[in-house]
Design a protein around this nucleic acid. Structure first.
Lengths: 199, 199
DNA sequence: TTAATATAATAGACAGTGATCAATTAAATT
DNA sequence: AATTTAATTGATCACTGTCTATTATATTAA
């Protein structure tokens, strides 16, 4: 196997991913380009295609990495002592999106082409973010309705997500709303209360 | 003023907008291109720039048109006799997004460049969609808390929006959720009940 | 040690993009 | 008929993702 680079295949993959993630954080989805990543690591464009197969798989890989950062961010918030772990979760959702806006929006800006499905490995790694929420929702639900936690958690994430997007894209500001996160927390409280949770 | 086209300026503007909207509906935001619009109406690319100033202003104009279609879609749903006008609203939100997915997602895919602000006229026309929701929310609130309708309406739209996005991008399906709209309706009910609404 | 083979990496071509603007053209005015 | 003026063009620029032919290197077999 004639390689002529300083990097082994896994090293090269990591290098591309790291620099790609950096560029995405810098310029966002719309201005992201595989060519620029290649230029920055001193390789030719074709090399990225050899390693990742396509532009979309590279972006999907970068976004999967963002999911993991995000999950770590939530766990960090949960590790700090606080009265309300659900509030910590919502706050973690908003603060991650705000702190890493280009990375966060890239997750939702990117759409796979019709002929491509998300690699199973990526699906699994992304899923761990949801797992955190399901775990915390289950913890506040009464034992007899714990089995509803996954459904409820997904719906709560959707609720928070909607508020978070509108907060970041200015929809709320346009109407004079100054506290979108508090609004989201209120919605989550209502739902959990209705489900019989202890808050 | 020597014009040499078959179309007056307003006619040309309408022509570009119409064909642009058609193309957006066909190929979506990612594959949309000013050049293709120009080709289809038989004008040069430069003409689109003369009329709309920039690519972003053209897309913003197309998306504003989509907002108006959407508002009309909601009013249509509300015009049909139904028990629950709030449910009709949520159903209208979901059914529009599903029926015109590329147009709907283009609204949120498009981001204005930092040096550009949304033209005031577009802001006003887009705002009418929110007005419909505010009006209907106000109608179910008790008179003493009607002044809360705008805030509440925006939060409810955010909630429904989050569920709608996750329904369309497959996030719900991934977790086996088969009824995202019913989930959204449940969330909206909880919030309106908590606000003392008559349902 | 040398020759054959396999593979990593590249350069460059291709067809497309948004954006710009000097040159052209047709109509309106004089 | 000559002149002014505004609408329209399309070449040009610097990009994009994708892909193939080519080159350089490392491993393996003789």
């Amino acid at each position: 196997m004639g390689r002529r680079s300083d990097h082994s295949r896994p090293e090269l993959e990591a290098l591309i991913l790291e620099e790609g993630h950096r560029l995405m954080a810098e310029v966002g989805f719309a201005r992201f380009s595989a060519r620029e990543v290649a230029k920055r690591i001193g390789y030719a464009v074709g090399t990225l295609y050899n390693v990742f197969g396509s532009y979309d798989r590279l972006v999907a890989a970068i976004n999967t990495r963002t999911f993991e950062l995000w999950a770590a961010h939530l766990e960090e918030r949960l590790a700090q002592p606080s009265t309300d772990r659900i509030v910590a979760l919502v706050e973690g959702y908003f603060s991650f999106a705000a702190a890493y806006m280009p990375l966060w929006t890239a997750i939702y800006d990117h759409r796979l082409p019709p002929d491509m499905t998300m690699p199973e490995e990526f699906v699994a790694r992304r899923g761990r973010l949801t797992d955190v929420v399901v775990r915390e929702v289950a913890a506040v639900l009464p034992p007899e309705s714990r089995d509803q936690a996954p459904r409820l958690a997904r719906s709560l994430v959707a609720t928070v997500h909607g508020h978070c997007i509108f907060a970041l894209n200015g929809s709320f500001a346009l109407l004079g709303e100054t506290a979108p996160m508090e609004m989201a927390i209120a919605r989550v409280r209502e739902t959990l209360s209705a489900a019989g949770a202890q808050l």
